[in-house]
């Protein structure tokens, strides 16, 4: 499977994403600058990494979601190919309309940087098939705007459709219904605030994110 990591001005988890993908697949992903208007030929998996694209100006992810590469990512997602957005990547995917809802300022107003306990709510997805349903994971979080918001109707719908993939054990940011990660209706686009790419090596302090990449990239 060929992978691409999108790089925006202000991305800072792009190299972690690169290393996690390379570790699991044995192949380095293409690093794609946001001003490109096409993904590399034959790209299967697109990762939109974390960071602070455009300094979080206006709204987190707002400017990045209107950048030159985004129409290609939207078109790629429409073919059913997998797209994963982590942290700022999650914000960018909601801003682009690929995922429902929005990420708002943390309810406690503070930047949170800690290891978060997550529950796998749906292990029957291409992103989570190597986990057991209900498994508890420890994955780092580091964000100021991770407070997931959607109206009740949308929340009921995504819960009903099994689109809530990860939930926090202890809500760190005020997210509605403790939501940490969701997919789109088709299940090929996922966004999550926690950083699985920072939990793929014992030196990271844990490897609970590894199975996400293994589920997706078909290894181990």
């Amino acid at each position: 499977m060929k992978s691409a990591v999108i790089v925006f001005p202000g991305s800072n988890c792009d190299r972690d994403a690169h290393d996690a993908i390379a570790k699991v697949t044995g192949h380095a992903p293409a690093m794609v600058w946001h001003q490109e208007s096409e993904l590399p030929e034959g790209t299967d998996f697109v990762m939109v990494p974390g960071g602070f694209s455009y300094g979080d100006y206006l709204r987190c992810g707002a400017m990045a979601s209107r950048s030159a590469i985004m129409p290609a990512i939207v078109a790629h997602a429409a073919t059913g190919a997998p797209v994963l957005g982590v942290c700022n990547g999650f914000q960018i995917l909601t801003e682009s309309g690929l995922l429902p809802g929005a990420l708002m300022r943390n309810a406690g107003l503070k930047f949170v940087c800690e290891k978060a306990k997550l529950t796998v709510e749906n292990a029957n997805t291409r992103f989570t098939s190597h986990y057991e349903g209900g498994a508890e994971l420890i994955v780092p979080i580091a964000h100021h705007d991770g407070n997931y918001f959607a109206d009740d109707e949308t929340l009921d719908r995504i819960e009903g459709e099994g689109q809530v993939i990860f939930r926090y054990g202890k809500n760190p940011n005020g997210s509605k219904r403790d939501i940490a990660g969701i997919t789109n209706e088709q299940g090929n686009v996922m966004g999550m605030m926690p950083h699985p790419e920072r939990a793929v090596d014992e030196k990271h302090g844990g490897t609970d994110g590894l199975k996400l990449f293994e589920s997706l990239l078909g290894s181990a």
């Binding site: 206006l58 707002a62 209107r66 809802g101 929005a102 708002m104």
Partner: peptide, 9 residues
């Protein structure tokens, strides 16, 4: 509609 506001919130 396209950039300056997010209609979700």
């Amino acid at each position: 509609a396209k950039l300056l506001s997010n209609p979700v919130i």
